[in-house]
């Protein structure tokens, strides 16, 4: 199994396409950092208007922790795309290349192949999140320094002391890995149905975008389904920046995501195991 995983990772990381994601993350983070350097304070004070009407907020507001958080928040939509770029390609891309039939004429079982593909996608996801931590957080800390972190929520103004932030980031990144692994599982699942990788990548994005909108719509109609949408739970990492941390909700969200992962990977194995390979 290790050997097969190694091979899969070798295939992923020998492809130029794989590094696009890392480049995109770097570029977005860097552009964001530049913008924050130039006019971050004005931008942020705009959001804090209700607070600054009454209070004098002074000190290093625009610091690495805040910029890191803002980058993570804005990458919320892009990261799933980048995960889908690789995970959506795992099965469909091989079908498209024509190598899938070559793989399947080798003595490995189909469930094994699906699991390997999933694990390899997960490793890629973890590396992408690690890279995100490097460019979004550590680079921001380098550029903007540390400080207390302000977290503007819709109805709450949270301030976290600077010595109380790093561990939260650690937990948030761990959670993000789970959330993005769910995206990888979704892409893999869609990938099993397709013979080219564009379909599953676009389908993943469409699902993420539509469900994210549904998750954020304040309509009673959607309240009933919201707890079942994985997009409502994907942003659970933000919970670690709240005070007090809603551990029960985060735990529940993580559970929902894990169930999605198991369901989607299981579904992929079930479908793929019966699929006629005619590509």
């Amino acid at each position: 199994m290790m050997k097969l995983l190694q091979i899969e990772l070798y295939k992923i990381f020998r492809r130029p396409r794989t590094y696009i994601s890392f480049g995109v993350v770097t570029a977005i983070a860097f552009i964001f950092q530049l913008a924050m350097k130039a006019g971050g304070r004005e931008f942020f004070e705009f959001g804090m208007q209700d607070v600054t009407d009454t209070f004098n907020v002074q000190g290093s507001i625009i610091n690495g922790y805040l910029v890191g958080y803002l980058i993570l928040q804005s990458l919320l939509v892009q990261i799933p795309l980048l995960v889908a770029l690789v995970a959506g390609d795992t099965l469909a891309g091989e079908a498209n290349l024509g190598t899938l039939r070559l793989l399947l004429t080798r003595p490995i079982s189909r469930p094994q192949l699906v699991l390997i593909k999933f694990l390899a996608s997960s490793v890629y996801t973890i590396l992408l999140i690690l890279w995100l931590a490097v460019v979004a957080l550590f680079l921001s800390l380098l550029l903007f320094g540390t400080g207390d972190m302000i977290n503007l929520k819709s109805e709450t103004f949270v301030l976290l002391l600077k010595d109380d932030v790093m561990w939260r980031y650690g937990c948030a990144f761990l959670f993000a890995v789970v959330a993005m692994t769910a995206i990888a599982a979704l892409s893999l699942f869609l990938s099993a149905f397709a013979d080219n990788s564009i379909g599953p990548i676009i389908a993943t994005m469409a699902i993420v975008v539509v469900l994210t909108i549904l998750s954020n719509l304040e309509l009673p109609l959607f309240n009933a389904i919201r707890p079942y949408l994985f997009t409502s739970h994907m942003i659970g990492w933000k919970g670690f920046f709240d005070d007090p941390i809603p551990y029960a909700a985060i735990g529940k969200s993580a559970m929902v995501l894990v169930l999605y992962i198991l369901g989607l990977v299981g579904g992929t194995i079930f479908y793929f195991n019966k699929k006629d390979i005619s590509s």
Partner: peptide, 21 residues
Amino acid sequence: PDMYGYLSGRDNLRIMAALTR
């Protein structure tokens, strides 16, 4: 004869050899 175009012939062969377990 579809292969991984971005890999060398030898690497393609090695991968497929490894898959025979």
